[in-house]
Design a protein around this nucleic acid. Structure first.
Lengths: 180, 180
DNA sequence: CCTACCTATGCAACTGGTTGCAGTGCACCT
DNA sequence: AGGTGCACTGCAACCAGTTGCATAGGTAGG
């Protein structure tokens, strides 16, 4: 179960509250390990009880108090233990492919529309990734250690989105030709 | 929930038992919508109760009896209803990326090994896909309708695996250089 | 002024997916 | 003779993830 570890890793980079973590997940680590705030809160509490993290309550004015979590020694140990065990293969669940496969049982035109919509969404996300690359990693070949690793993960996202967009184009093109 | 629909689509292509469906999922539709036999059995029963599918019990000699399911009219209606509604974006959960991101908190060499292992697995799967392409779709530009759609889904798998393998190579190369 | 959204945490109920087990009979290997 | 593996279905327990809701003050916009 990698959610614990994704949170721990994110917390080593910077301490934060459940809410903040949920935001972070929305725009970085959650691209390949999505999580809702609910899940994050639950896992944080569990890890707190297990002693992997500690929290300090911070009173705020004008906005609700928050609990800022940071990784404790057992949490760090747990990360390196987990890093050493084999990762199971990435899970992909793509309803769009299922639809495409069954397209001829319904309105193919609608599936084509869906394809175009997804193409647009992934193109947007690709631009987001490229923006991050330009802003945060302008000189990739100077990177080392943690920053290099972060950059490489981003590269994976870019590659995945690129190939998704290209695939959509191939599909859209083929469906249009088939329709003529 | 696309598992119902993945099963229905698979059953329109060919009627079959839960067990057979589980096998099929293992080597085709399950590549982008994985499911265990347990899940398939449960969903089949639910769809049977809902009238989306019907089953005939088939007594076999030497091996256990089986229930062969086929799609009923309401099931077909349900497919085309579902095809017309928007698909939510593909979900990816990739523990390997999480590991890479946190690699510097543990033994980077081990993460590199993991990367190589995953690279090999994905290369194998890529070869499987390419084999299917050669065998089942030797002349892609003559395809139309259902076969075209199936081919296009396979193309998506090929593209995804290709880009994954290339990414692994990029990562492996970069980690090695960083280690020197 | 009212609505809507943001920060912040959390409970409760639910659905989807996983794991472990159990039974049965045949085929194959050692 | 004994073990493993395949074909076939299924129960039970569990774990992970989703959805809806509650609370509560602050800010921004129509």
């Amino acid at each position: 179960m990698a959610l614990e570890h994704a949170i721990l890793i994110s917390l080593t980079e910077r301490a934060g509250s459940g809410y903040e973590l949920a935001r972070r997940f929305d725009r970085s680590i959650g691209y390949f390990w999505p999580a809702t705030h609910q899940q994050i809160y639950r896992v944080l509490r569990r890890m707190d009880e297990a002693g992997w993290v500690t929290h300090t309550e911070i009173a705020q004015e004008g906005r609700p108090d928050k609990k800022v979590y940071r990784v404790a020694a057992p949490g760090r140990a747990e990360i390196s233990r987990w890093l050493a065990e084999p990762a199971d293969p990435a899970v992909l669940r793509d309803g769009l492919s299922v639809k495409l496969r069954g397209a001829s049982l319904g309105d193919v035109g609608l599936v084509l529309k869906e394809m175009e919509r997804h193409r647009a969404e992934h193109a947007t996300r690709l631009e987001v990734y490229r923006g991050i690359q330009r802003r945060d990693f302008p000189k990739p070949n100077t990177l080392r250690g943690r920053e290099l690793h972060q950059y490489l993960v981003l590269r994976g996202g870019i590659r995945a989105e690129e190939s998704f967009v290209t695939w959509c184009d191939e599909v859209i093109d083929a469906l249009r030709k088939d329709n003529r």
